[in-house]
Simulated scan of single mutants.
Amino acid sequence: MIPSIPSSLTAQAAADLAAEAAPAYLLNHSYRTYLFGRCIVAKPEVDEEVAFVAAMIHDLGLTDAYQGESDFARSGADLACRFLDSRGWDLDRIHLVEEAILRHTNLVAEEVPVYRLVQAGAAVDVAGLGYEELAPDDLAGIVKAYPRLDFASTMRTRFLEEARRHPEGAFAHLERVVTLSDRFGANPIDGPGA
């Protein structure tokens, strides 16, 4: 059974913020990031609301509404901080969301459960890394609920645009180190029987 989506007012507001700014392929990616990550990082100490908010906002720095002069992750983290501050969240929880967004592209597995959840979920959805940790029924259920649409090709284009725009940013680093653009179209979750 796939994990449930947090139902707090702030979680709903984060989902609404993402729905207003993100095209469908990116919005569904945000949901899949949370759900894949929750399946992989099943530790009870994970603050699900923090993880969900971070997952919903983590790529909004790629959208027309929130793209800024900074790297997309920094733009998304700053957006999350403003959003959560306006909702009266305490600074420790805001910092967890900020760091989860900033660290989600790191290549070394994060140890803090919330950071790892967003990182692992995004890695599965973008490149299929760690997909074997998902139960086949969970994988199928998540993709059915939040279809991939044209994610692989459209996100690859956005990835390369962001890497060119910010040559010292996270995406440019991933392209230099692991040629991530080659992995979008080879994600095993899109393969036969997926």
Rank of each mutant, 00 (worst) to 15 (best):
G68P: 02
Q12A: 13
G193M: 12
D137H: 14
P167Q: 11
V126F: 11
H104F: 13
A80T: 05
S8D: 12
A73H: 08
I5C: 07
V112Q: 01
Q12G: 08
D92R: 14
G191H: 08
S86R: 12
R32F: 14
D90F: 09
A14Y: 00
H166Q: 14
A18N: 13
I2L: 09
A140N: 10
L174I: 07
V126K: 02
A77K: 03
L79R: 05
L91G: 06
A14D: 02
N187I: 06
I189V: 15
H29A: 13
L79S: 05
V41P: 01
R87F: 03
Y66E: 12
L160I: 12
T179W: 09
Y66S: 09
I40W: 10
T179A: 15
A152Q: 07
N187G: 10
R38F: 04
A15I: 03
H95S: 07
G61N: 05
A13M: 06
D47P: 04
A51D: 02
D71T: 09
E168L: 11
H95A: 08
F83I: 05
A15W: 03
G61A: 08
D92F: 11
L79K: 05
Y131L: 12
R116M: 09
S153C: 12
T157N: 09
A127P: 00
A122W: 01
E45M: 14
E45Q: 15
L27C: 08
D78K: 10
L174P: 01
A170E: 11
T154R: 10
G76Y: 06
A194Y: 04
G76R: 01
R38I: 03
E132Q: 15
Y25K: 07
V46W: 04
Y34W: 12
A170T: 13
S4W: 07
L79P: 00
S30F: 02
F83N: 02
A140G: 10
N28I: 03
D71G: 05
F36T: 02
Q67P: 04
S181Y: 07
G37S: 07
S181T: 10
D138P: 03
E161C: 09
A140E: 11
G141S: 11
A100G: 02
F171W: 04
I5F: 06
